[in-house]
Amino acid sequence: MAKELIIALVQSPLFWEDPERNRKMFSKKIETISDQVDLIILPEMFTTGFTMHPENIDAKEGIQTVKWMQRQAAKKNAAIVGSMVFQENGRYYNRLHFVEPDSGFNIYNKRHTFTLAGEDMVYNAGEKKVLVEYKGFRLYPLICYDLRFPVWSRNTENYDALLYVANWPKPRSTAWDTLLKARAIENMAYCIGVNRIGQDKTGHEYIGHSAVYDCLGEQLVFSEKEAVLQVTLSKEHIKSTRDKLKFLDDRDHFILE
């Protein structure tokens, strides 16, 4: 069982509704990661930007992107995670794939579709939590708007880290910063947020603020620029902090319906 997990956060602008161009761009960024890392995290809808017109994206692109992720994961010997427009059985999903170096993967469909942008009218909402066991760490991947809903994020499964991929715009960046830190503190877990930068075709501006917070809410890494950030998560830090403070022993017990 690994005692540490080295992660890379890729904060980048995105090309609007252009999966092939985005894959090529991220291939180059991933290639620049010279250190051995265990996990590479890409933003929400990293092949298209936050489009509400998935019909503009060829139905084959989802599978093509998963195959690309499998190739990249094998090449870097690291898991890769990010969400994309995915069409299945005539329905559209904002679907996250967590792809491991052996090509195996887990999927999570975004639970809280963003009603302000009409995402709920276009994409089908997910219904299930997905917990990923990877290199001795228990990870809970979520997508953007999920961050605003603490019940869905609550640490009832003793996970080690929350992982949010996002297209979170500049006007609400204070909420992003605050909620990432809050999720870390209340769940006594690492909280990782990977956002994009730049401007999309709808005129929304993104300033990143990709960050990692430890289980006490201490910020370990942060950026507003185009960057690949690296940080190491420590299993011992989680265990020693929880053993000392025991806040999770007093958590409320409930069942989601």
Rank of each mutant, 00 (worst) to 15 (best):
A2C: 04
L5H: 09
I6H: 11
I7C: 08
A8I: 02
A8M: 03
L9S: 03
V10W: 05
W16N: 03
R21C: 12
N22K: 07
K24V: 07
K24E: 12
M25E: 03
F26E: 01
S27F: 14
Q36A: 15
Q36W: 15
D38I: 08
I41N: 12
M52G: 13
P54I: 10
E55I: 11
D58E: 09
K60S: 14
G62S: 01
Q64E: 15
Q64P: 03
T65K: 03
W68G: 01
R71E: 13
A74H: 01
A74C: 00
K76C: 04
N77T: 01
A79F: 05
A79P: 00
V81G: 03
G82M: 00
V85P: 03
F86D: 06
R91P: 02
R91I: 11
R91N: 14
Y92M: 07
Y92R: 01
L96Q: 12
H97I: 10
S103K: 13
G104C: 11
F105Q: 06
F105E: 14
N106C: 13
N106F: 14
Y108L: 15
Y108P: 08
K110F: 03
R111G: 06
H112L: 15
G118F: 15
E119Y: 10
D120F: 01
M121R: 13
A125W: 04
A125S: 10
A125F: 07
A125Y: 07
E127W: 06
K128Y: 11
K129I: 07
V132F: 03
Y134S: 09
Y134L: 03
G136N: 07
L139F: 07
Y140F: 13
P141A: 04
P141W: 07
L142D: 06
L142Q: 10
D146I: 08
R148G: 07
F149G: 00
N155K: 11
N155A: 04
N155D: 02
D160C: 10
Y164G: 14
V165I: 08
V165F: 11
N167K: 01
P169V: 06
S173Q: 07
A175S: 14
K181D: 11
R183E: 15
A189S: 09
G193Y: 04
N195K: 10
G198L: 08
Q199M: 12
K201R: 08
T202K: 11
T202R: 11
G203R: 00
Y206M: 08
I207W: 01
I207Q: 09
H209R: 08
A211M: 13
V212I: 04
V212H: 10
C215Y: 04
L216V: 05
L216E: 06
E218G: 05
F222W: 14
K225M: 11
E226V: 00
V228S: 00
Q230A: 03
V231W: 04
T232V: 00
L233N: 02
I238L: 14
K239T: 12
S240N: 15
T241A: 11
F247R: 06
D252P: 04
E257C: 10
